[in-house]
Each structure stands twice: as C-alpha cells, then as structure tokens.
Design a protein around this nucleic acid. Sequence first.
DNA 1: ACTATATTAAGGATATTTCTTAAACTCGTT
DNA 2: AACGAGTTTAAGAAATATCCTTAATATAGT
Lengths: 193, 193
Amino acid sequence: MPINKLFTSFDKYLPLDAEEREELRTRVTERKIKRRQFILQESDVCKHYTFVAEGCFKKFQVDDKGVQHNLQFAAEGDWIMEIDSFYSDKPSRVYIEAIEPSIILQIKKPDLFYLFTHNPKFDRNFRVIMENRFVELENRILQAISSTAEERYLSFINQYPHLFQRLPSTQIASYLGITPEFLSKVRNNIAKK
Amino acid sequence: MPINKLFTSFDKYLPLDAEEREELRTRVTERKIKRRQFILQESDVCKHYTFVAEGCFKKFQVDDKGVQHNLQFAAEGDWIMEIDSFYSDKPSRVYIEAIEPSIILQIKKPDLFYLFTHNPKFDRNFRVIMENRFVELENRILQAISSTAEERYLSFINQYPHLFQRLPSTQIASYLGITPEFLSKVRNNIAKK
DNA sequence: ACTATATTAAGGATATTTCTTAAACTCGTT
DNA sequence: AACGAGTTTAAGAAATATCCTTAATATAGT
C-alpha cells in the first residue's frame, strides 16, 4: 500500500502513532502518474507537497535556449515540490515530470497547514526532512564549486546508485551541469583506467 | 541590543511574545568575535546554532590542495552552522571564520531542543528558516549548473549587494567556484561593456 | 509481436571557457 | 621601509561546450 510507505518514511524521525497516521491518511490523495506526465508546469502555482511512493520524477528548469537543467530527482520515499511557489503562491519556474510510471501521495497546502498547527509532530518531522535535504544540497554545492565533472559523476554514482541504474545518462549530465557529449567522454575516460 | 535583532528576525515568520522572548533570551549566549577568529574548525563538532547580530562570517571547506571553498556567507540577521555535524555529532568538515569583528548569539543543542519540545512555535520558526535557506540553495545550484561565471557574478552582486560591498573579490570568487584570477578577467569584461 | 519513430549513446573536430603559474602592482599596516 | 593580502595581466594548458555523424536502443501505435 502506497500510504504505508509514507508512514514508514516518518519512522526515521518521529514515528507516527495510529491516530496521527489516520490524521495524515485522510488528508492525502493518491494518484497514478504515467511516464512523461507533468505534475507541475512552469508558471502554474505549486499546490501540493508530493511524496513518491513508486516510480521516479525529475524537477527541472528550462533556460532561454530551451535547455533543461535538472534540479532534483525524486524516487520512492522522496518528497518533491517547488517550495517557493508552494508557500508564496508565485508561479513556478520549474517543471516536475514523471520519468517512470509512478504512484504519488499529495497534500494540499490547507491540509498540510492543518497538520502543522494541529500536531507539532508534523512541524517537527517536516523540519527534519528539510534539514536533511539541506545537508544534501550543501554537499552538492560544494561539489559544484570545487570538483571536476569526473569527480562529480563518480560521486553521483556512489551517492545515488539506485538512480544511476535507472536514469539515462543524458539526465545525469543535466543534473551534474555538463553536456551529454562531455559526460560520454568522462565515462570513456573512467572506463579506460 | 544584539538580542533584539534576534527577536526581530522572527517577526517575518511567527513573532515571539514576551514570554517566548524570555525563554529564548535565557538560552542564548552572546559573544564578541574578532576578525579572523574561528567559531568552528574542521574535525571539531559543531555545538551551536549561531545567529549573527553584527559583522560577517564565512563557512568554507579546504580541499586536499589547501584551497578554500566558500559555502556560505552570514551577515547581520543570518544563521550559520554545520547542520550535519550539529545534529549527528560528527566531526565538522568545514570552518566558520569571522570576516569582520562580529557579535553573535549562540544556542547549544540541549537548549535548542528544549525550545523545540516546549513550544511548537520554535519548531515552526526554524522549519521556515530552513525552507527559506533551501530556496536560496536551490537557486544557487541552478546557477551553478546552468550559468557562466559572468552570469553567476552579476547575479551575486544583484542578490547580495550588502555582501558585494564588504567582501574582497577573492572571497566572492571562492563562493562562485572560480579562481580569483578568472574573476578579475570577468570583471574586466563587464567593465568594457 | 512488428515496424515506424524517437531517444540515447558514442565519436571526432573545433571553439570557448576556465585554470595554472608567475610576475608585477597596489594599498593599507607594521 | 617592509610586509602581506588583494588585484591585475599574460601565456600556455586543461576542462568543457558545440556541432555533427552514426550506431544502438527504446517506445508507441497498429
């Protein structure tokens, strides 16, 4: 059951008791998403926090030349949303698209706020989720400003083996901030060693 | 008074009432820090959340060649810490150093946890602080993977004019992930236009 | 299951961006 | 007067992008 994956995901932090699970369950909507389907498009407002129960998504921005830049991948157990748009109702500058057929659980803002104000445990859990993502992002920044493309690629493989297997390397290149052609060369160099 | 800047900083989110301010005040320590003084060194454990009331800090990592990479600047009203080390008691991989004579307010982990568990407003406020930082970091990632050095520099000036004035460009170069020599060339190109 | 179509990967040639190294030059401080 | 940190310049080298071609795979529709 998709909802159980959501419950389990809180066990790392402050696990939810039966009542809290029920509170959460009634405020969450389950959706099946097809490959290539968008759950958020540029200039729309991001209306949900999305939990990925099955499948995989990418969040990306498109520049003026039409090139996509991957900001995040989200697979089973990950959250994905455009926070800025979600909280401030600004139009989103990013897209969120399914890379695989997926099952997600979504919470709308009023429901999330209800959980936050009604039970501090939700504030707590989402604070910790944010903090963990924050650590990941700072590491990625460090890589971006201090490492070569080869180092970043090896580190990606190492840190996200489950993504490395599933994603075409063109998507990984976009995440690393290099062209697919150059990633191909990097892989070639690594193979030669 | 430094502590008032801390109180004021919460006004953007959920402002603190008199009692909550008192709870916070008694758990915070004020310190004067000299220029070049470190408040966190590599391999030490990060013991505090630090709020900058006056002055400016940088957080950086040193690579195997001895080169510094600036992960964050924190000026008046900003928070700075090594979250990963703080929560998990792991040795820090970064340094935090004063760039100017500064006044800071620090909270130790037990005190912060006390605030979190005794009043949900603190969980809430620190969740929102994290979310805001998160948005900043995602923007920085986007820049790093999609923009040239010149674009990143112009965008830094635009986004952080107060830092741009105060920081030597060698520090900004390190933050942008380029060498000081190359930043000099970039500035030269911009000036020519 | 089976083409037609689209996507992905690889390679080569060349251009651009950025780094490295080293030297000279400022400017405020000792 | 000397020092040290910050800045600039320049030349060659390394990293990465661009553009293009071809081959291999995957996907979608019938």
